[in-house]
Write a protein that binds this DNA or RNA. Sequence first.
DNA 1: CTGATGATGTTCT
DNA 2: GAACATCATCAGA
Length: 203
Amino acid sequence: MRLKREFYQRNTILVARDLLGKKLVHKEDGIHYIGKIVETEAYINTEDDGAHFNKGLTNRTRIIDESGGHIYIYNIYGMYQLFNIVAEKKGVHGAVLIRAVEPIEGIESMYINRYKKDFSSPSKKEIINLTNGPAKFVMAMDISKEEFYGADLVLNKRLWVENANDLQKDEVVRSKRINIDYAIKGKDYLLRFHIKDNPFVSK
DNA sequence: CTGATGATGTTCT
DNA sequence: GAACATCATCAGA
């Protein structure tokens, strides 16, 4: 079952935590990419200098105003795209960055997308490196800004999040977010969540 | 294994 | 013109 609107239209921090263990699905030309979400970060509001939208929306961030379940993808460092899920009700601003997934299905295609070579005798290191970072899994699962900026995970035919059983409380680790040293208010907020001991969590 | 560095271009000031 | 929610690669231990 895909997650419904109600899941996304909640407090951003709860959405970030509860996305752990759920499965991101992208269907494309007969290829079925599935990745289990193992690491997320919440970006909240005007009290959070780390959030792109803390001083109001711009053309880049306009979709954050939409209801929870929409997709916010943006370019970073000229060459990468990062994947976020909008949270909260329409008009309330919050988003969850997906930082890493564990490959479940479509691994062979992910391998070709990442390394541009045939899938034969891959090393364990190469498999871990497929999806253990926010730009890496986007490349592996062939998700693009052009195609999915503003898409709705509740309704979209080719991209959604599949429900899964809740994790045990002791499987979830909460910590500070990564690479937002520039944020004055928000740098030390504990808004990063990951699955304990999962090898695909980013370094 | 670790840490340092360069790539690269959109967005915002 | 600067900043940037990153990654691949390389040098050194």
